[in-house]
Design a protein around this nucleic acid. Structure first.
Lengths: 205, 205
DNA sequence: TTGTCATAAAAACATTTGTACTCTAATACA
DNA sequence: TGTATTAGAGTACAAATGTTTTTATGACAA
């Protein structure tokens, strides 16, 4: 039994596990044993079964016995992460409690036609949106669904696309930065195209 | 053909589609036709076949012909979002280009044992981590893997868990806030337990 | 060597499962 | 009212697939 990784899997098991995760991520369903057989360069399904059994015993995967392509990756996969509690950023009071909630990122991603934009510049820095952040946006179906204070990406012809607070006063529209160094932009409704409304911010360190 | 939703599906198709999405989200694999049949309260697979065909024709799902449980939801599901370009937050220069990259949140989530914490307070505000944000953390296997400048969640016995910059100077460890209003905490190595290292920040609006 | 263990191949088997076909009931429409 | 269309039930079938069994091979320790 040769192991090279720091987990408790053999090389063969590791290779299979990695392949499975990849396949399932790409195709949204489980591969069949014969597919895995081919991918691993084997000529019989038996070795795969054995490896799968080990992976299952060690808690990496599970499946419904006798049912085709019913594997599951046991890991909290995809978009759910356990919330372990809260950290004080200041007060130093809270402690790790084993709250068993999950942060579900897919909640946001499931909306129709969500798209992402890379943030360029620091005009929204006071809203804690920094240069390099990814903002997840929802297409704006209806101008009237916008509320004062929403953060929107707006296309101002001749100027480009910008991320700003939306503010409506009477017939005027103001695009305000969250950084006092930038002046608000005053516009008529027909001078601006609203592309999206901010749903979430994502920053990878 | 009775439709009630705003999309172009019949009620029956809508119900099935919703059920499928749910099933696949929960089990990480495709249901079989007979499972759908039961879930829809039908006694024959034919109607499901027909509904699936319609869902496929309208671009909602796809599958590999003849292969069991190989459905896919066509939507950008789960953790990938198309990156539509960049927005100026300041300069007003960039324009929507149809860059065809994807923001892949799962890249971070795939790491082992990632967990999330709710941020309490404003001591990291200058690092653009605000009260209420969720921080995604990676467990720290090895103290020596920490680099100066990493953001860590640390348990200081008697004080609690806190989110701070990690800084090591000689034998001393400093936990520094990203807010000048807070004093750095000076500690010995054995006075602190490092729980996690910051991978990403998530803020839902 | 000998025996044990794990892995791989090969073949066979039973079940699950997608698909196709026919028939009936319900519905829509002229 | 009658006809066309659609949805559902029932059945049958072939392919895909998980599972089992038997045998062979190589590594390793006694």
């Amino acid at each position: 039994m040769t192991t090279s990784e720091s987990n408790n899997l053999t090389d063969a098991q590791n290779e299979l596990y990695a392949w499975i995760k990849n396949y399932m991520m790409e195709f949204q369903h489980s591969p069949s044993i014969r597919q895995m057989m081919q991918a691993m360069g084997l000529k019989s399904p038996a070795p795969i079964q054995s490896r799968l059994k080990h992976l299952q015993e060690k808690g990496y995967i599970s499946w419904q016995e006798g049912k085709a392509r019913t594997m599951q990756i046991v890991d909290e996969i995809a978009s759910k992460v356990p919330i372990m509690g809260s950290v004080a950023a200041g007060g130093l009071i809270e402690t790790f409690s084993d709250v068993n909630e999950n942060l579900d990122l897919s909640e946001v991603l499931q909306k129709k036609n969500v798209f992402a934009l890379t943030v360029n510049g620091d005009s929204m820095i006071d809203a804690c949106i920094a240069h390099g952040d990814m903002v997840l946006m929802e297409p704006i179906k209806d101008y009237y669904s916008l509320r004062n204070g929403d953060i929107v990406s707006a296309l101002v012809p001749g100027l480009g696309t910008t991320l700003k607070y939306f503010l409506k006063k009477g017939n005027k529209i103001f695009l305000e930065a969250a950084n006092p160094a930038y002046e608000p932009i005053e516009l008529e409704l027909d001078q601006v195209i609203f592309q999206g409304k901010l749903l979430a911010v994502w920053r990878k360190v």
